[in-house]
Design a protein around this nucleic acid. Structure first.
Lengths: 247, 247
DNA sequence: GAGTGGTCTAGACCACATG
DNA sequence: ATGTGGTCTAGACCACTCA
């Protein structure tokens, strides 16, 4: 036949069905982060729909941050960069010579397989009895601890991590997950609360107990919305400044 | 002539010029918040451009939150509702019987005309010597103080406020500004930091000195981007929880 | 039933990137 | 020179709202 079928509910608009189809292909790994998807002309032919309709489908995915257009080159599956993460708003005076913000150094302190607590099991939607990998990690800038992280990953998908030496971990974990475990993070949800440091956290952050801290809880998911990583980050509140624009 | 001219730089795409034209008409007060703008068919005729182009211009303004489409009725100038404001994330157990969140009560404590501090003058971009109205205000839920606000307004635009009794102020200030002073807020920028309460703030919030607080700085502007209101809100940190989605 | 926005077509031509 | 996305046209028909 001359045109592929677009699945889904027949009552949905064409552009929504194509949008979901593209998202599904990315989730399935047919089109990988950093790679191109078929050209708009190809999509019109493949599915037998007009250019305007294809553009509207792609527009929506670009708005959602899943795709990225580059004129003259093609449309690419975007690697999320998490520019708006709370974590980026711990003030770090570390800029390189050109004034560009540097990625703070990441240092893995511990890595172990364990039975998840109820909170962790719920967050990652784990089956009963499923184990997790628990990573403890520091983020440092200029040798000073910016924040301390506890990270939990489902062992079923990340078991190869356990074979890695602690010093071999990269500053950026998500590309590392992709390389080592073939698990791709697509999006995340974060919650921020303020707390005061207890003795343990105070020691980790080199501050006094009772000082205010910022606690960031992150659940990161793959392109198919499966929860892949649960993370709690704690940093001293006095280095934190967050901003938004609203309308 | 059969079609109005779209101003601006000839090199810009038509849809961008139309978008800016519509935004300018709203800023100028030709089309008021809550009211309709001309239909898409009218816009195509007025400016002599195709429907798809008009739709793209309107699409962008809808995405920016300036316009709102209602199928079968028309396209309206949106009143900003500030749903994503940090202020909405002070946990308040106040819900009405249907579980809908209620607007916390606002109580104006003081209102005076004064010479602005350097910070306030900078934030509002005031000319030298220009005076401000300083309002102190509490937000309460269930009789408990949620947060305390200091609000500064340029006296030149808001002088009629000084003639109002403190008890006559509404819970929502922005519709009140519109009614009393004909000043319309379109958008805002907010910054959040954590601090600890000093004696004065502790008294205002009924907490102990040294407890962590959340400090929210807001600069609100009109449809023409003029800064209209500068506000600092302080609330106890233990009732605050903020969340975002990132990609 | 008249009028609104929502979806979709089947193109044309332009601007940009790359070999 | 070729192929990509970016802009724009001139409609048609559908879905919804309201008098």
């Amino acid at each position: 036949m001359s045109s592929m079928q677009l699945g889904q509910d027949e009552r949905l608009p064409l552009y929504q069905r194509l949008r979901d189809e593209i998202a599904a292909r990315i989730a399935a790994g047919d089109w990988l982060p950093g790679g191109v998807i078929p050209t708009e002309a190809e999509l019109t032919k493949t599915y037998g729909i007009a250019t305007g309709t294809v553009r509207k489908a792609v527009d929506e995915l670009v708005n959602d941050g899943l795709l990225q257009r580059r004129q003259g080159r093609g449309t690419f599956v975007r690697r999320p960069n998490f520019d708006s993460s709370f974590m980026r708003f711990f003030r770090q005076e570390t800029k390189n010579s050109e004034g560009v913000r540097e990625v703070p150094e990441g240092r893995v302190l511990a890595l172990r397989s364990e039975k998840p607590s109820g909170d962790v099991r719920d967050a990652l939607s784990l089956a009963a009895g499923e184990k997790v990998i628990h990573m403890e990690r520091q983020r440092l800038a200029n040798g000073r601890v910016l924040f301390h992280e506890d990270i939990w990953l489902p062992e079923s998908r990340f078991s190869t991590l356990m074979t890695i030496e602690l010093s071999a971990f990269d500053n950026l974990l998500y590309p590392f997950y992709e390389e080592v475990c073939e698990q791709r993070i697509a999006s995340a949800h974060e919650e921020l609360v303020v707390d005061v440091a207890d003795e343990k956290v105070a020691g980790q952050l080199c501050i006094s107990a009772g000082q205010p801290i910022v606690v960031i809880e992150r659940l990161a998911s793959g392109y198919d919305k499966t929860p892949l990583e649960y993370r709690i980050s704690r940093g001293s509140a006095d280095t934190f400044r967050y901003q938004i624009d609203i309308a």
